[in-house]
Simulated scan of single mutants.
Amino acid sequence: MIDIHSHLLPGVDDGSPSFEVSVSVLQRFAEQGVTTLVCTPHLSASYAAEAPIQQHRELLAELQRRAPAGLVLKPGWEIMLDTPNIDLTARELALGGSRAVLVEFTRGGLPRGATAELRRLARSGLTPVLAHPERYFGCTLDAVREWRKIGVVIQTDASMLMGRGAPSELAREMLAAGVIDVLASDNHGDARSLASAREWLEAHGADEQVALLTHTNAACVLNDEDPIPVPPLRAGLLDRVKRFFRR
């Protein structure tokens, strides 16, 4: 598995507070089959020019030194689009040196001009990877479909598929419609993982979707390739998922 969204660079945001916590999570991830993980600390677009790139490089190098053998760590950021029209084309802001940038909006609701800003990023030569759209108040399936048409990669938090409440319901609707491109843990030094979603999908008969969501499309993003469309859930499988959450 490849995880392109995590907050395991220690002590830099609201994620892991220490190397000890991060290493513990990395050991668990390695045992579960994660081979590549991108560390994506929070960064506001308005402060992109002041990003502490060298400091984070040093922390990442030390974390890689302590990581389990075979687990590759890559640099990245989760960029809050708090101000429009900011230049985010510096490779140091991207995921693992690719052209892909992981971006987010506030939970309070999609700002006016959200689609225009995502389109601007795509036209600047970047691949916007939108983090957890299921969490944004006002987000709809139609909006997600429009974003994908303009070149946005949709990343859903794995834990949302198995939760309850409106965001989780939207996440499952997105899965059923085939508009999620990539799953990620969004781990903050806690128990969240890709493995739990993989097991949940396999248990519900979504084997065809598992590899694309947890490995293939993440590799495409890091290699500057277009993600492969994930098939919508078959009618019978969708009914099984709905029955599970009516218990």
Rank of each mutant, 00 (worst) to 15 (best):
K149E: 15
L126K: 00
E146G: 00
L110G: 14
W147H: 05
G108C: 08
V152R: 07
R107N: 11
Y136P: 07
M174Y: 12
G125K: 01
Y136A: 11
A171Q: 03
V153N: 07
D157C: 14
E169P: 00
R123K: 14
L170W: 08
A114D: 12
R148C: 01
T127P: 07
G165T: 07
S124E: 11
P167Y: 05
T115M: 10
S159N: 14
V152N: 03
W147Y: 08
I150Q: 11
D142M: 04
P128Q: 02
G125E: 06
L161H: 12
W147T: 07
W147K: 02
E173P: 06
L121P: 00
A114F: 13
K149D: 15
R107C: 10
G178M: 11
R107M: 13
G125I: 00
G113F: 03
F137T: 12
I154N: 06
R120M: 07
A116E: 09
R120I: 00
S168H: 14
L126S: 02
G113P: 07
I150S: 05
P111E: 03
R145C: 04
V144A: 12
Q155I: 06
P111M: 05
P111K: 10
P167L: 04
R148W: 02
V152W: 02
K149T: 14
L161S: 12
R164M: 09
G178H: 10
R135I: 10
L141E: 09
M174I: 02
V144E: 09
R123P: 11
G138S: 05
A166F: 08
R123M: 15
E117Q: 11
L130T: 10
T106A: 10
A131N: 06
W147D: 06
V153S: 03
S168Y: 10
T140W: 01
E146C: 01
G108L: 15
R145G: 03
L175C: 13
P133Y: 10
S159A: 15
D142G: 04
M174P: 08
S168D: 08
E169Y: 04
E169D: 13
A171D: 09
V144M: 08
T127Y: 03
E117M: 02
G138T: 04
V179W: 07
E134H: 01
A131Y: 05
W147C: 03
G113Y: 02
G138K: 01
D157H: 13
L130R: 06
M162A: 10
R112L: 09
E146T: 08
A114P: 12
R107Y: 13
V179K: 07
T106K: 05
T156W: 01
G108D: 15
A177P: 09
S124Y: 02
R145A: 06
Q155L: 13
V129N: 01
S159L: 13
G151V: 06
I154D: 07
A177T: 13
H132A: 15
A176N: 09
L161C: 11
G108P: 08
A158W: 14
G138R: 00
P133S: 11
A122P: 01
A171S: 15
R112I: 10
M174V: 03
G163M: 02
P128H: 02
R164Q: 06
Y136K: 12
G165H: 05
